[in-house]
Design a protein around this nucleic acid. Structure first.
Ligand SMILES: [Mn+2]
Ligand SMILES: [Mn+2]
Ligand SMILES: [Zn+2]
Ligand SMILES: [Zn+2]
Lengths: 138, 138
DNA sequence: TCGATATTGAAAATCATTATCATTAAGTAT
DNA sequence: ATACTTAATGATAATGATTTTCAATATCGA
C-alpha cells in the first residue's frame, strides 16, 4: 500500500519509477523483518524476473538516502534494511526469526543529561535496539 | 597495564602467548577509541615489525570470543573493536575523533517491561549507544 | 632440552560490493 | 501519440576486505 508512497517519493526527488524499483520497493516495504540485498534480489525476482542484484544495491542506497529505509545492525551482520518507522522509534528484533517490532516512548533525556554532565560530551544522537524472542518463537 | 591480564586470559584458555599477540593486545588494550584490523596492524607493527594482518584478524577474533573486546557499530562501518567495559556499560562515541567513553547507570527495565507487555516479546538483550562530540571536539 | 603442535605470515582463494559500459526505457517536450 | 534526452538497467569486470591454505617457526609442557 505505502509502496506507492515510496515510489512517489522517488519520483518527486527526480528519480524514475521503473519495474526494477517497483519490485525492490514492494519487497522491502512489505517485509516485517530486516532483509539483505541478496534476499531482496531473490524475493524481488518473483515480481520482476529480470531484476539485477546491482540494481537492488543501487535502489536500497536511494531508499536509505530518502530515509524510507534504515540499516539494521545485528550480531550476525549489519547489511540488512527495514522500512523506517514513523517518528522517533526503535527496533525490537526476534533473535530466532528476525521478526521486527517498532516501539517508542523511550525517555533517555535524564540519562543523557547526566552522562553529558559527567563526561563533558555534547550528546547528539542515540542508538537503542532490543533483542528477544517474539510471541511465536518464545 | 591490563594487557598482561589479557595475555593471562589467553594463556589460561589454552592459547599461546606470542610476540604477535602481545603487539595486538597492547595496541587494542591501550586504545581509547575503536580500532579497525588495519589500524591494529599498522600500530602493532611498530611494536613487532613482522606482524601479519592475518594474525591481527585471528587475534581479534579470539579476544572477542573471550569477551575482552567488543565490536563497535557506527554509521561509517562496523568493523572496529574496543576493549570491553567493566560490568554493564555502554559506549559514548565522539562523532569527530572517535574518542570513546563508557557509561553505566541506564535503567531500561521500566521501558523493557512495558514493551514486553505490549508486544508479547521476551526481551533478552539491549544495545544502547550514544553519539556526540567530546570535550575537545565540541 | 626436546618434541608435539599451536601459531605465524605469505600467497592464493573467496565473497560481497562497486565500477564500467553498451543497451533499454522513463518521462518530458513536441 | 511520437520523438528525444538521458537516467536506469543488467551483464561483466574490477575491487577490496576477509578467509583459507600451507610450509616454516616458535611456544611451552614434559
Ligand atoms: Mn530514542
Ligand atoms: Mn544497559
Ligand atoms: Zn521470532
Ligand atoms: Zn572528539
Amino acid at each position: 500500500m505505502s509502496a506507492e508512497l515510496w515510489l512517489t517519493q522517488l519520483h518527486e526527488n527526480g528519480y524514475r519509477v521503473t519495474a526494477a524499483r517497483r519490485a525492490v520497493v514492494e519487497t522491502v516495504e512489505k517485509s516485517t523483518r530486516a532483509v539483505t540485498p541478496l534476499e531482496v534480489y531473490d524475493l524481488g525476482r518473483k515480481k520482476y524476473r529480470a531484476l539485477g542484484l546491482v540494481t537492488v544495491y543501487r535502489t536500497l542506497e536511494k531508499l536509505e538516502e530518502l530515509h524510507l529505509i534504515q540499516r539494521v545492525h545485528q550480531p550476525m551482520g549489519c547489511q540488512a534494511f527495514i522500512s523506517m518507522g514513523q517518528g522517533h522509534q526503535h527496533l525490537l528484533l526476534c533473535q530466532n526469526c528476525g521478526q521486527a517490532a517498532f516501539f517508542e516512548g523511550d525517555d533517555l533525556n535524564p540519562l543523557i543529561n547526566s552522562i553529558a554532565r559527567k563526561t563533558g560530551y555534547q550528546i547528539n544522537e542515540h542508538w537503542l535496539q532490543l533483542f528477544g524472542l517474539c510471541a511465536n518463537c518464545r
